[in-house]
Amino acid sequence: MQVRDAAEWAASLPLAQALREGAWLYPVVETVHIVGFAVLVGAVAMFDLRVLGFGRQLPVQALARHLLPWSAGSMLLVVPTGLLLFIADPQSLLANRVFLLKLGLILAAGLNALAFHAGPYRSAAAWSQQAPALARLHALLSLGLWIAVIACGRMLAYF
């Protein structure tokens, strides 16, 4: 099945039709998506800011143990609601460069997080008050990528 065929199939689902035609369903799903995204990006941003040197009195690993479950748990809201928003109008979203950029940025942010946790974070117990330069670079990249994702999500309403 090609992407275009899959998009047409998704758009034909009764749930997709309800999202398009109902007065409340789409706005409720979008609100839950935004709340989940706020928790995700908020937790990531707080952690990234700590890696960058803010709040040095908080141990990095202790903060990670507190924030990472929030960011992971928020995915239980973000992913399903994002898919629901997508099936409401998949053809136009797939033709929208801003949407495709948003997906690429999300992928880049995820790969950055994986590289951070597989790389510099493995030695976090040995970090003194300041994280090493590579860890700070990952944190800066993370913040920039998530801000760009937010900007793309907002711009979808205009493009």
Rank of each mutant, 00 (worst) to 15 (best):
W9P: 02
S74M: 02
V149H: 03
V29R: 07
S71K: 04
Q130S: 01
W70D: 03
A23N: 07
L77H: 11
A7T: 14
A10W: 14
A131M: 07
A125C: 00
P90E: 10
P27V: 11
S142R: 07
Q91K: 06
S142I: 15
L68G: 01
L140I: 09
L101N: 05
D48I: 11
R4S: 06
V60H: 06
P27M: 00
A139I: 14
V32A: 09
L49T: 07
I106V: 15
N96P: 08
G153K: 06
L25I: 14
P80C: 01
D48S: 00
A72V: 13
L141I: 09
P14A: 04
F54N: 04
Q61E: 05
A125K: 08
A10F: 14
V44C: 04
A23R: 15
W24F: 12
A113P: 00
G73R: 12
I34W: 11
V44G: 03
I34M: 13
V41M: 02
V39Y: 14
A72H: 05
Q2V: 09
A88N: 05
P132T: 12
V41T: 14
V98S: 00
T31A: 07
A113C: 08
G36Q: 03
L25E: 12
L114T: 11
A125Q: 07
G42D: 04
W146S: 01
Q17P: 04
S92M: 10
R136F: 08
A113M: 08
Q91Y: 05
A135L: 00
L13N: 06
H66Q: 12
V39G: 04
A115W: 11
C152N: 02
A43W: 13
L13V: 08
Q2I: 11
L85P: 06
M46N: 02
R4D: 04
L103H: 05
Y121F: 11
A10C: 07
A125G: 00
P120S: 02
A157P: 07
A10P: 14
V29A: 09
A62Y: 12
L40T: 15
K102L: 05
G36C: 03
A118E: 01
P14M: 05
A124V: 10
S12F: 09
L58Q: 10
L134A: 04
Q17S: 13
V41I: 15
L93S: 03
G153A: 00
